Simulated scan of single mutants.
Amino acid sequence: MTTVYLLFILILAVFVGFELIRKVPATLHTPLMSGANAISGITVIGAVSLAGGVQHEWATWLGAIALVLATINVVGGYLVTDRMLAMFKKR
């Protein structure tokens, strides 16, 4: 029964996230990306603590996967933000 609740929360989070991001105007994408990078940085810290902890083997693997995905998100987000901000610099 707990799995059903967790699956429901995951589907609801995906739907709400998609609807929120879809309605963001183009001028707000850079600040939104910066905020997402901060949140992903917190995710990296949580993933490191999960991957390095002494739990079940599946928790360690899940933490390692979360660490890789969150790191890709942070690095990619900063690269995109830097590129977007470079468009506003004077040449």
Score class of each variant (00 low, 15 high):
Glu19Asn: 05
Ala86Cys: 00
Gly52His: 09
Leu62Gly: 08
Val48Ile: 15
Leu69Gly: 00
Ile21Tyr: 12
Gly41Gln: 03
Pro31Asp: 07
Pro31Asn: 09
Val24Trp: 06
Leu10Phe: 14
His29Ala: 10
Leu10Tyr: 10
Ser40Pro: 04
Ile72Leu: 04
Leu32Val: 14
Ala51Ile: 08
Leu79Lys: 11
Ile21Ala: 15
Ala38Gly: 09
Leu32Trp: 10
Arg91Leu: 07
His56Asp: 13
His56Gln: 12
Ile21Val: 15
Leu12His: 03
Leu79Pro: 01
Ile65Tyr: 14
Trp61Cys: 01
Asn73Thr: 12
Leu20Tyr: 13
Leu79Thr: 06
Trp58Met: 09
Ala47Cys: 09
Leu7Gly: 11
Ile45His: 07
Thr60Arg: 12
Phe8Val: 05
Leu6Ala: 12
Ala66Val: 02
Arg22Phe: 03
Gly35Asp: 15
His56Glu: 14
Glu57Gln: 12
His29Ser: 11
Val54Asn: 06
Met84Lys: 08
Thr71Pro: 02
Met87Val: 07
Thr2Val: 14
Leu6Asn: 15
Leu12Asp: 07
Leu69Arg: 00
Leu6Val: 11
Tyr5Lys: 14
His56Leu: 13
Thr71Lys: 02
Ala47Trp: 02
Gly52Tyr: 11
Leu85Phe: 07
Val75Arg: 02
Ala38Thr: 09
Ile42Leu: 15
Ile21Glu: 10
Phe8Lys: 10
Asn37Ser: 12
Leu6Pro: 04
Gly17Trp: 02
Leu6Phe: 15
Leu28Phe: 13
Gly17Ile: 00
Trp58Gln: 10
Lys23Ser: 14
Thr27Tyr: 09
Thr2Arg: 13
Leu62Val: 07
Phe18Asp: 04
